[in-house]
Design a protein around this nucleic acid. Structure first.
Lengths: 113, 113
DNA sequence: GGTTGACGCAACTCGCAGGTTGCAATACTG
DNA sequence: CAGTATTGCAACCTGCGAGTTGCGTCAACC
């Protein structure tokens, strides 16, 4: 998939906008890769809810499922999309602050031309 | 307001997670401060919907209403919360990566530390 | 003074995200 | 083989976010 910065950043924003998802990522960060049932023991929600969140995070590229030995599937953190989102934020803020002088022909939000 | 980084970052993420809101911010960035009715002419949604989004963005600190001359209220961009969110992202990514491989010094973004 | 724009508030619809319960299938263990 | 975990899939419920329509009001302009 091509590096569509905007789409990636949006997915990261959506992912991090939810407190449950942030807690889930924090649990993965502090405890290392884990399965959905493992995470369900540490968080106050059911395994299926966690599985849904993991699917969304996986879609965003923030976690990656790695097939374990048995039937278990462990999820590991992946920080690459966050750096994309970070650059997106930086570019946006730079655009805002330099708005008065540099009035460019920069239409709507498509940076892909 | 107490410097609650997490709460601020969450509001920024929620704000930027919506495409309509991003378009609205882009319109403000390219056209300068504007009123709700002014923005309603450029975007395909009603004035009231825009007013709601502006209220949310104002709550997040991303825009600030400034009382205009007549009865008009113009909204101006404010980039400070985005830098907070940016540092939040940077800290999170550093936390993730710093667990297994502490040798990645490839972050060449504008984070003063 | 009456009409015209612009703003704010409130009620309403509608789709979907977050979460649950239930179930079938699979893999290991006694 | 019977029993126990663990996973994925599907149906379902519920609240809220996004958007619309409608109304009352205040400021200007003719």
């Amino acid at each position: 998939m091509p590096p569509d910065h905007e789409a990636t950043a949006e997915q990261v924003f959506v992912a991090l906008a939810d407190p449950t998802r942030r807690g889930l990522l924090a649990a993965l960060a502090s405890g290392g890769p884990a399965t959905a049932t493992d995470l369900a023991n540490r968080l106050p929600i059911t395994r299926q809810a966690i599985a849904k969140h993991l699917a969304l995070l996986s879609e965003a590229g923030l976690v990656a499922p790695e097939p374990g030995e048995r039937r278990r599937v462990r999820y590991r953190l992946h920080s690459a999309p966050m750096q994309v989102a970070q650059q997106f934020l930086a570019a946006m803020a730079r655009d805002w602050d330099g708005r008065l002088d540099a009035l460019k022909g920069h239409l709507d939000l498509g940076e892909r031309r």
